[in-house]
């Protein structure tokens, strides 16, 4: 009886049950530049987690580790029980298709139109032409860019570019949306627009991990806030605010 209890008690800490799980992760570039120090934290399905902290706190490094763009010096990063740094080179793209990413600098393909940028994500995951022809116009309508489908990124405003990148992140119905400073290059009105869109995505059941240092944005969301400082997590609150 006691054994069963102990098992059930330890469940929340079992790395195989989280959507995202960082286990004792450190990233050390060199002796005087430690980006992350012994980070352990998890994100549960359908959660909206804001990752806050000043520039250089380690938010972007944490996201790069999750996307397997960089390798941890120590520890492991799990996405739905898969250690993302131990995947075969042909498995990694499959996992990345389940994470929708949004960046401060939008990361749109400059030589492709808004439509093609979104369609590319679908082509890459091997969807049929029929699916692409029906889904892309729908998502463009959702983000309010139906009339800009054939525009190239340089012909779009910052807010429009970010909406294209959100559309691209959503198009493959990912399990989690990872947004790294998505409002960093936008004016307050556009920033608010993006945050509302992220909230809506979360309401529909998609996990969202948002890294930002925008105080107004955090305080308006009113959901879980993980605060970082100098490569460490210093606070993790269920209904947090931006405090430094």
């Amino acid at each position: 009886m006691l054994g069963v209890f102990r098992v059930s008690f330890s469940l929340p800490f079992n790395k195989f049950l989280h959507m995202i799980y960082f286990e004792n992760v450190s990233k050390i570039y060199n002796a005087i530049s430690v980006a992350l120090e012994n980070i352990t934290f998890s994100v549960e399905p359908k959660e909206f987690v804001s990752l806050v902290g000043q520039s250089g706190a380690g938010k972007t490094t944490l996201i790069k580790l999750l996307l397997a763009e960089e390798y941890p010096t120590e520890g492991s990063v799990f996405f739905e029980s898969l250690d993302v740094h131990r995947l075969l080179s042909e498995e990694l793209p499959m996992v990345r298709r389940r994470m929708g990413t949004i960046f401060q600098d939008f990361k749109l393909l400059p030589a492709k139109t808004a439509y093609e940028n979104i369609a590319f994500a679908m082509e890459a995951s091997g969807r049929t032409n029929e699916e692409i022809a029906s889904d892309v116009p729908q998502i463009l309508e959702l983000v309010g860019l139906s009339d800009k489908a054939d525009n190239f990124p340089h012909e779009l405003s910052g807010g429009e570019k970010q909406r294209v990148s959100i559309a691209r992140a959503l198009i493959n119905r990912p399990d989690v949306i990872i947004a790294d400073e998505p409002t960093g290059n936008l004016d307050p009105l556009n920033a608010w627009e993006i945050v509302r869109l992220l909230g809506k995505i979360n309401d529909l059941g998609t996990t969202v991990l948002l890294a930002t240092h925008d105080k107004d944005v955090i305080n308006a969301i009113g959901k879980r806030v993980v605060t970082m400082e100098k490569g460490k997590i210093i606070r993790d609150e269920k209904k947090g605010r931006y405090v430094l």
């Binding site: 793209p93 389940r98 990413t101 990361k107 400059p110 590319f120 691209r168």
Partner: peptide, 16 residues
């Protein structure tokens, strides 16, 4: 270079 990096992040396979 950046274009290739973006494609990787979107989950395109190397061959694609």
């Amino acid at each position: 270079k950046t274009e290739i990096e973006i494609m990787k992040l979107v989950g395109a396979s190397r061959r694609y």
